[in-house]
């Protein structure tokens, strides 16, 4: 009974949070609702007994939405409403409804056919965390490593993009050197 109550409560909370995130024109409201929705989703993992995935959902998405806040801080005055450019709302509404139905059909189709077979059945006696590890490092090893390489590429690219004057560290420089650097920059501005 508790599971049912928890499920409907968190289903309602999640959907209403994402509804706010989509419909509001206030950047701070949208971001906060998105973060709250992501955290409420973890409740479903906990209800299903997948504690590890639930905690990972909280850890990963609270950090990810935090990065969105940083963008919000840079691009908008987050205490004001944003004037949105609204296109043809009928097309937007129609396309998003179609996309939602398509996703439900794609995920529901294999279940309806009823020929699903668990190729990697649950290992007896292994805990929740161990089970994730077992599947991740046997069946899904290649996708896991590919994802790791992709993240590494993104990280290197980010460092190259942001890393101008990375060899200089204000912390390690003496005061004279810092002043010299400052004067040089001021000269450039004056020229």
């Amino acid at each position: 009974m508790f599971e049912a109550i928890a499920f409907y409560l968190f289903a309602f909370l999640t959907i209403s949070m994402f509804f706010i995130a989509v419909t509001t024109s206030q950047a701070l409201h949208a971001l906060t609702a998105l973060a709250a929705g992501m955290i409420f989703i973890s409740a479903f993992f906990f209800i299903l007994g997948a504690d590890f995935l639930g905690a990972i959902q909280i850890v990963v998405y609270s950090g990810a939405v935090m990065a969105l806040y940083a963008f919000g801080m840079m691009f908008f005055d987050t205490t004001r409403d944003i004037k949105e450019k609204k296109g043809n709302s009928a097309i937007v509404f129609g396309l998003s409804t179609l996309a939602a139905i398509l996703i439900v059909v794609i995920f529901a189709a294999p279940m309806v056919s009823g020929t699903i077979e668990a190729l990697y059945p649950v290992v007896e006696g292994a805990g929740n965390t161990q089970q994730v590890g077992l599947v991740l490092f046997t069946k899904y090893l290649v996708p896991f490593e590919v994802a790791a390489v992709m993240l590494l590429v993104a990280m290197v690219a980010g460092i190259v993009l942001a890393g101008k004057k990375m060899d200089l560290s204000l912390t390690l420089m003496s005061d004279d050197e810092v002043m010299k650097l400052k004067n040089e920059q001021n000269k450039k501005v004056l020229l």
Binding site: L28, D51, I58, V59, Y69, N128, T129
Partner: peptide
């Protein structure tokens, strides 16, 4: 819960939304 320390650190991480917001 068998993921105690992960849960504690995750929730403490969510706590930093307070100062941020």
């Amino acid at each position: 819960i068998n993921i105690g320390i992960l849960y504690i650190l995750g929730i403490m991480g969510v706590g930093l939304y307070g100062p941020l917001l």
